[in-house]
Design a protein around this nucleic acid. Structure first.
Lengths: 141, 141
DNA sequence: AGAAATTTGTCCGTATGTATC
DNA sequence: AGATACATACGGACAAATTTC
């Protein structure tokens, strides 16, 4: 079948469903999500669509994926004592971020850190900040 | 040519090239990037690969895409009163960044801050860091 | 106003590469 | 070495938003 994405696109619906399972505890923090192949069967969607749904969850801070291992539901640590390579964590808005987001200082934000490597060297580090409950994300449409 | 992604994946190389054009001014802030169809021809890559490259640029804060319009290079010196003008500045590497870049704490890094707005609201704040001297981008490894 | 062209968005299917178990 | 799981890449088709004629 072609592409009848009335209203919400398929990957969005799937992402919402998986997010619901995580928030409800059906998939506990730290637990592994079903493999892409399993989700493909369950939702009757192409693998690419499943992957896009999971990518959306990652961007929203609900999951973390590791190459040959799988995707884990995120346990967002309130750590301010940051040392590890936590790719994702909660943090409190400082003055600058609070101003930008128009919230009060101390409001919880999600910080994600990505590293672009060139061979063994780190070429760039990217840090993204956003409020929790972000929806779709026009960036990708 | 199936999928030989030795070293850097194709979309990564393309993203780096496009980013270089933006940073160098070859594609001025606010300007439209070539359409996906054009980039597909230029790089001889599938459309999906081009789209992934552009998605990477979005995540790094270098571009913003709108549905039937196209992808614009993000404007750095935005108006508004809340901006300390320069969205790009030098800063000293903290412990975390120093570790990643394998340099000493206090080494000068370039920090770029992009503010992605959705309407009047700030949706995301993206900060990218990279070494000053060295990199810009060997483009290829 | 309307139709066509342009451009990005979604989805499917297939194949191969890479990391982990 | 084999199996499992995620990653990259190609190609095709149709949908939706915008611009152009």
């Amino acid at each position: 079948m072609p592409t009848p994405h009335y209203g919400q696109p398929r990957y969005r619906v799937i992402a919402d469903e998986l997010r619901k399972r995580i928030e409800s505890g059906a998939i506990p923090p730290g637990a592994l999500l079903p493999a892409e192949s399993v989700l493909t069967s369950e939702f009757g969607a192409a693998r690419g669509t499943i992957r896009k749904a999971i990518a959306a969850l990652r961007e929203e801070g609900y999951a973390v994926t590791e190459h040959g291992r799988g995707t884990h539901a995120t346990r967002l640590t309130q750590s301010s004592a940051d040392e590890p390579a936590a790719s994702q964590r909660e943090m409190q808005a400082d003055a600058r971020l609070a101003t930008l987001f128009q919230v009060e200082v101390g409001t919880t934000l999600i910080e994600r850190e990505a590293v672009i490597r060139r061979g063994r060297q780190v070429a760039r580090v990217i840090r993204t900040y956003h409020l929790r409950r972000t929806d779709p994300d026009p960036a990708e449409r």
